[in-house]
């Protein structure tokens, strides 16, 4: 039982990061009905920038802020230069283009920073805390991850549900035509959606980097896990993405703990297949009809 508790607690921090990345996917999906498979590529790129700033300045907070800005800019660039010009009718083209961006970003990062994995030293201790007579699988750094994730999720849900900007954003996601008639600048909402997603992804990248190493390909698995979480959550729902992000982290941690880390992608695949077969639109999706 103790072991179970340890594995579960250990999974929550990873789950929080998966949740953030899933959140980024959901933000893009909500604004432009595209799954941005380049999201982890963007996050990887901004994390490299942030690592560079961190090494130069020594300030983690500054590095995080730079990552957030860089993430927003990169999201904007990808949207304006790539996704916007893709013809609307070409649904496959949009998906393929995001993979093109992913390949290009990974190659560019490899050019600039090399393929060797780099260590991202966490700003606070990443070893298990001692409390009540035993060592727990939760570190100060994990607590920092929880804190950042919770603040971010609360802030986003406040913006989306309580402000007029959030209302405009939701309106343009649900029905762009009607939103436009009601005076919402849909194209501006699109840009903001991509920028916000870029920032959230960048934060996820900076947060996960110390738990793994940083290399151009090191976030590939995170993409699979985040996609799994976002899809199970319905791709439309912030709550769903966060809940199932943490859930995916938990399940993967249990799988890794009780068997082997190499089982994680297989379990993720099985989860995805089973859920998609049962509920092709996920658990928290609002839109029901799709073919007319």
């Amino acid at each position: 039982m103790n072991q179970f508790l340890d594995f579960s607690l250990g999974g929550i921090a990873n789950g929080a990061v998966i949740a953030l990345m899933a959140l980024a996917l959901v933000l893009v999906w909500r604004s432009s009905r595209v799954v941005n498979f380049a999201q982890v590529g963007q996050a990887m790129f901004t994390t490299f920038i942030s690592l560079w700033i961190y090494e130069v300045s020594g300030s983690w907070l500054l590095a995080l802020l730079i990552a957030i800005c860089a993430g927003a800019i990169l999201g904007l660039v990808v949207h304006l230069l790539v996704m916007k010009p893709v013809r609307r009718a070409d649904a496959s083209g949009a998906i393929i283009a995001t993979f093109g961006v992913l390949i290009a970003l990974q190659a560019a990062a490899g050019m600039i920073w090399g393929g060797d994995p780099k260590a991202f030293v966490p700003p606070v201790a990443n070893s298990g805390l001692e409390f009540a007579g035993r060592i727990w699988p939760v570190s100060w750094y994990d607590l920092l991850i929880f804190a950042v994730t919770s603040v971010l999720v609360l802030a986003l849900s406040y913006v989306f549900t309580r402000t007029s900007f959030g209302l405009a954003m939701r309106a343009s996601a649900l029905n762009p035509e009607v939103a436009r008639i009601s005076g919402v600048r849909v194209s501006r909402m699109l840009i903001l959606g991509w920028a916000m997603a870029g920032s959230v992804g960048a934060i996820a990248g900076v947060l996960i980097a110390p738990s793994a190493t940083l290399s151009p390909n090191s976030f590939d698995l995170l993409l699979v896990f985040a996609f799994t979480a976002a899809v199970i959550g319905g791709l439309d729902s912030l709550v769903g993405a966060v809940a199932f992000g943490v859930g995916t982290g938990l399940v993967l941690s249990l799988v890794t703990g009780y068997s082997d880390a190499s089982n994680a992608p297989i379990v993720s695949l099985v989860l995805l297949v089973v859920i998609l077969l049962m509920k092709p639109d996920g658990f928290f999706s609002q839109s029901k009809s799709r073919v007319v």
């Binding site: 999906w29 595209v34 799954v35 498979f37 649904a91 496959s92 949009a94 998906i95 590939d220 698995l221 993409l223 699979v224 996609f227 799994t228 899809v231 791709l235 190499s262 089982n263 992608p265 297989i266 993720s268 695949l269 995805l272 297949v273 998609l276 077969l277 092709p280 799709r290």
Partner: peptide, 25 residues
């Protein structure tokens, strides 16, 4: 075949990552 574009791409992405891992199992 039941899935729309992005869902399918993501599922097959998981497939592409998961299947080679089976060799290690």
């Amino acid at each position: 075949a039941r899935l729309r574009g992005p869902y399918l791409a993501g599922l097959t992405l998981a497939f592409a990552v998961g299947i080679p891992a089976i060799a290690n199992r």
